[in-house]
């Protein structure tokens, strides 16, 4: 029996009081869900979600068009994002995979990207946007676990695109991410994944509670994943750039 939480369907009552949280709606002083989600430690966590771009999100995209003024980028959204040539010194070609940050979102959902970098050849996969926080984990504990276990370089975009590269065990990464998605709503996910990686012959250390920031529940924070993982990613990126040349 897998330990799961209370699942809430759209329109179902979450709290009797007024709580302003994303993916909920307040009607007559009571808070109702608007998407399928679950209640954990008095927080409403969506299980199915359409990705909505936010300023500051890290995203992975595919260059779909090269124009004088900039580049159109497929971001797994209804409409392509845009990189203005003014704000990038790197030039891209069509079908390049880029990793960047959302600079601006206009009122009709148009997205401007900044700090775009080209990612070398690798595997691009698509995951549901609601599972991205789980794949990253609290203070990127989960991501580091997969990185250590497989030896791959992994970039995760908030938009649901994941890029996997480097000389590591790629099939193991794909299997692990699939497992995380399947078990995203269960408790003790980091331990489950660590056990899985170990059973597959990977040598991983489970981060202790202190390393995860003294939080009992693992992998359920939307987390400031920009801070910790970015430094590490940038290091690895430098390595990779050299490798490619």
């Amino acid at each position: 029996m897998i330990d799961t939480e209370k699942i809430i369907v759209p329109g179902e009552l979450i709290w009797e009081k007024e709580v302003r949280e994303p993916n909920t709606e307040v009607v007559n002083g009571k808070t109702y869900a608007t998407v399928l989600g679950m209640l954990r430690e008095d927080r409403f966590i969506p299980l199915e979600l359409v990705y909505k771009p936010k300023v500051g999100d890290n995203v992975i995209g595919i260059v779909t068009d090269v124009r004088h003024s900039g580049y159109s980028v497929d971001l797994n959204l209804a409409y392509d994002g845009f990189i203005n040539s003014k704000f990038t010194r790197v030039s891209f070609r069509k079908a390049d995979i880029i990793y960047g940050k959302i600079k601006f979102v206009d009122e009709v959902g148009g997205v401007d990207i900044t700090d775009a970098k080209r990612l070398p050849t690798g595997k691009l996969m698509k995951v549901p946007a609601s599972k991205v926080p789980r794949i990253i984990g609290k203070k990127s504990s989960m991501l580091n676990l997969i990185r250590d276990g497989s030896g791959c370089t992994i970039f995760v975009g908030n938009n649901g695109y994941i890029w996997i590269g480097g000389k590591g065990n790629l099939p193991l990464v794909l299997r692990t991410i699939k497992l995380i998605i399947e078990k995203a709503h269960t408790r003790g996910l980091t331990d489950t994944i660590a056990a899985y990686l170990r059973s597959q012959g990977a040598n991983v250390k489970v981060p202790t509670a202190e390393e995860r920031g003294g939080e009992q529940s693992q992998g359920f924070e939307e987390g400031p994943h920009q801070d910790a993982p970015r430094e590490k990613s940038e290091e690895k990126e430098k390595e990779l750039d050299i490798e490619e040349m």
Partner: peptide
């Protein structure tokens, strides 16, 4: 629609 994660007031 709920399975697609599309926000809805009610079912």
């Amino acid at each position: 629609l709920a399975d697609a994660g599309i926000p809805m007031r009610d079912i």
